[in-house]
Amino acid sequence: MGRFRKNDKSGVPEINTGSMSDIIFMFLFFFMVITTIRESTLYVRITPPGATEVQKLEKKSLVSFIYIGPPIDAQKYGTEPRIQLNDQISGVRDLAQFIEAEREARDEVDRPLMTTSIKADRSVKMGILNDVKQELRKVNALKINYSAAKSKNVYGN
């Protein structure tokens, strides 16, 4: 009685790979959602200093970034630290206009919550940062954040 006879085909059955792409697509969407694409290409070199007491930057949409560091293209911009706003190397004088434009782009209710994140290279001198801070005070952008990487020990030097 061959009722429970085995299939004639022997060997490993083929695995259906049709759903594999769905899984990978799911991965893809997951990564697309949780990651952020760099908004602006950097023209200045930035190695953030380390600190232990760092806080996460909340509400990315309300943050405007100021990059300060030595230009990558030293041929064109020299080696002295420069300020980058949006997509171009700028001076301290352009800051007021930059902050104003950033404010205009946000809803009125969100404006008091706006933060300015200063991303500066660790080698930058405080002179340029003082100028930036004074300029920010003038336009009443008082919430700032000194960008620093989380590290265990700050006396690494």
């Binding site: 952020t36 600190a51 806080q55 000194y146």
Partner: peptide, 14 residues
């Protein structure tokens, strides 16, 4: 894409 979250020391200017 970059996964790193931005961290820093928050301060308030006078």
């Amino acid at each position: 894409s970059s996964m790193d979250t931005d961290t820093g020391i928050a301060r308030k200017l006078p």
